[in-house]
């Protein structure tokens, strides 16, 4: 997820609070120590409680594809100032395990809890798209969320290349487990291939 750090004309910086809400990371801002839900895009406690974050469009891609499309892009360096082994995934076990780490309340049984979904919300209407469905249908998937028409571009390898509105503008979207998406979007629908 990518958000603007500007909230009501003030600029904030964020850290990792060590707290979770519905099994999802709570960030905090260094300026007020308010806690911000990453998936809710909103401060849930502290002086800024209730304020919202503005989502910015981003894409998930593989490096080869991204580089071909944006040859002059720069990329986050491993020279972070922290000694970390970036070739090792600290969450390797979590991806494989079938259960959630922390309680998220009741999980709707539309999909398996750890099924990976693309989540899109437009004007308060939310829908989850199981990622593995895309592998079977590269191309452009047109859908309607409430009154909004959207297009999901799927690469030949079944990856989500872009999510756009009817005018071709990029729409914010997230990749998540089903249990997390449905916890933050309790009224979400689930896309089914027609």
């Amino acid at each position: 997820m990518v958000y603007s750090r500007k909230i009501d004309a003030k600029t904030y910086t964020f850290g990792v609070s060590g707290r979770l809400y519905k099994s999802n990371v709570l960030l905090y801002d260094h300026q007020t120590e308010s806690l911000w839900s990453q998936l809710k895009a909103q401060a849930v406690a502290g002086p800024l409680a209730g304020r919202r974050l503005t989502a910015l469009p981003s894409v998930r891609s593989d490096w080869k594809t991204w580089r071909r499309r944006h040859p002059h892009a720069d990329v986050l360096s491993v020279d972070t100032g922290f000694a970390r082994d970036y070739s090792r995934d600290p969450y390797a076990g979590y991806y494989r395990s079938g259960s959630t780490w922390f309680p998220v309340g009741r999980v709707r049984r539309d999909l398996a809890a750890k099924r990976q979904v693309l989540g899109i919300e437009v004007n308060g209407v939310a829908r989850a798209y199981p990622l593995d469905e895309f592998r079977r249908r590269p191309g452009i998937l047109e859908d309607r969320l409430g009154n909004a028409r959207i297009r999901i571009k799927i690469s030949d390898r079944g990856q989500v290349a872009a999510v756009q509105d009817a005018r071709g503008r990029l729409l914010p979207h997230i990749f998540s487990y089903w249990f997390a998406w449905q916890a933050f979007h309790p009224r979400t629908s689930v896309y089914k291939i027609p």
Partner: peptide, 16 residues
């Protein structure tokens, strides 16, 4: 973290 004015149930904010 001050949770006094939390807008979600405070007992749902857990240490991770």
């Amino acid at each position: 973290f001050n949770l006094d004015n939390a807008i979600v149930p405070r007992d749902e904010i857990l240490s991770g």
